[in-house]
């Protein structure tokens, strides 16, 4: 069976005089490498230059708020169940009177923690969430950490800031369907 047309039969035939002299082969090899010397380099200077990774890249987690700025999460725990790395843990609480502007449902997550050392950024929490609350944002990555106590991200670092709302913008060059049609509208 032939898998590719680039395969070559190995032969152990005697070398011709030109091949024994090595020089023609050496010169043609040098010509090939010098061609690469002047070629444009494909390297992207990473920390200074960042590449657009596409609208479905799975980066930093975010707990979305709704249009009125209320937290969407109701602490149902489905994300924690779905998480294969068991990175998510939460404590549920009941909404008090007067907190209607803060939380959308009667139950909310008083504590919501993700262990970034455990997280494998698979996005299963995003898929499991029935309230469209947790997302892995496409435009930001979890920063590098040096200390172990920096690793567990609480609500202070996960809940979306109202002045810095996350929009999963659909890049015009990349044709993908947004996961939730209301998302782009919700954010603006």
């Amino acid at each position: 069976m032939q898998l590719t047309n680039r395969s070559k039969q190995v032969s152990n035939k005697e070398m011709t005089l030109a091949e024994k002299m090595y020089l023609p082969a050496v010169i043609s090899g040098l010509a090939i490498t010098i061609g690469h010397f002047f070629r444009k380099k494909p390297t992207i200077q990473y920390p200074e230059v960042k590449k657009y990774l596409g609208p479905i890249y799975r980066g930093h987690h975010i707990l979305k708020r709704d249009e009125q700025g209320r937290e969407r999460c109701t602490a149902c725990g489905l994300c924690a169940v779905a998480c294969p790395a068991e990175a998510i843990s939460m404590v549920a609480a009941e909404r008090e009177k007067g907190e209607e502007t803060l939380y959308r449902e009667e139950k909310y997550a008083a504590v919501y923690e993700i262990n970034m050392l455990r997280c494998i950024f698979c996005g299963l929490c995003e898929e499991a969430c029935p309230k469209q609350a947790v997302y892995l944002r496409h435009d930001r990555m979890v920063p590098v950490f040096q200390e172990r106590d920096e690793v567990i991200y609480g609500k202070d670092r996960l809940v979306e800031k109202m002045d810095d709302r996350y929009i999963r913008a659909n890049n015009s060059e990349v044709n993908t369907t947004p996961t939730e049609p209301s998302l782009t509208r919700a954010a603006t």
Binding site: I34, H36, K41, T43
Partner: peptide
């Protein structure tokens, strides 16, 4: 540097 350039890389920078 030469090694990098011959291999389409940039080298120490």
């Amino acid at each position: 540097k030469v090694a990098a350039f011959l291999q389409d890389r940039i080298g120490p920078n």
